[in-house]
Design a binder for these strands. Sequence first.
DNA 1: TCTGGGGTCCTAGGACCC
DNA 2: TCTGGGGTCCTAGGACCC
Length: 419
Amino acid sequence: MPLDTLAPRPRDLMLVDLDCFYVSVERVRDPTLRGRPVIVGGVPGERGVVASASYEARAHGVHAGMPLHEAARRCPRDTVFLHGDHAAYLAASRRVLDVLGRFSPRVEALSPDEALLDLAGCERHHRSWLDAAAAVHRAVRTDTGLDVSIGIGGTRAVARIALALAKPGGVLEVRRGEEAAFLADLPLAYLPGVGGKTQTALERFNVRTIGDLAAVPESILETTFGRTGATLSRRARGLDAELDASDVGPRTAITRTISRETSFAHDTHAPDLVDGMLSYLAQRACRALRDEGLRARAVEVRLRYADFQTAALRRRLPEASDRDEDVLTLVRALWPLVWQRRVRLRLVGVTLHGLERKAGGQLDLLATIDGSRHLDAAVDAIRDRHGFGALVRGRAIDLLPRLASDQAGFRLRTPSCSR
DNA sequence: TCTGGGGTCCTAGGACCC
DNA sequence: TCTGGGGTCCTAGGACCC
């Protein structure tokens, strides 16, 4: 890592977050949902958790990540439960990114409902950053009907914490030089990278606020917690950690892993069901792989038992591949090895590792004489026209009626805000 | 019927090579 | 005979985030 990326570079970052994103998109499509408790993630009776809850639902103690049946127990009768429409959310997300692109040439989508803007060079267009934030809020509102919250700070971590305090629908700017004072009294849990385990570990050292952490010498934290300790130390002091120092902009790095997993409606001990579901998931993962123009070098099969214990095995493929057949062979060999306990399974999943860009030229030439590659391409084309379920290999076909559609990532954690 | 699905980064130990 | 390092690849698993 070059030294200059470690030096604290003065910059102004604006983190924009869409409030109750999924619920808000649903309300734009169906205004009768306004003012009522709305929960996106599934319907009661299904296995699942809340992905997004309206403030009316949150008033009853519902939050993202809560099991659906628990949410149903807490909410009034007229609460609307929706599965969600991820294609619509993605489309809305793109429209918002278009709007943000008018405010800065450097916009980075962090998730479907969050984007980071580097404000360098935008000074002359606005009297202040608060002014700019108000303009962003108005523009997104006008063009998409969605509301945003905004955090402004000199580092990704500071902007994120400012955002947490700005919700819902507000703006908070932390000016350069004021980071230490801003962070000092905040509970440790506000610091990105501090989860339950780390918080507990640090509390044993009497570290309870971000200011407490900032006061501990970085060398001690690094000795105790390794690289993570150094990262947290820098964030707590309002500095960029190595991880955070990258330029703001579209991600260019290659995807690291591609995974597809699903929970069974009921825990199962039926080998046919497990084999079929894993075949289906493997084919979906391979399709995503081909869509990205990547090949995988290793395959992992994961499962979760009814008691929530999980197990996984990872093996290299004989050679990097994007073909259903190669991955299926390995998946079929692996799952009987992973499933050791005589306990029902609640979830199975397939993860592709060691992704690399598919080589061009010569391999394409090979592909023309490679029948199974042709087959995958033909299958992909049929699925494009008629949906993924139109064609599934082998035993996976038995499962089709109960398979859910492709789903993008759910937003789980909404930092709590008491101000 | 407690506890979804898709990711990233980091660590650690063993194999193997020089 | 004994005692080493360093580097890289591979697998397993933890913690965290949205």
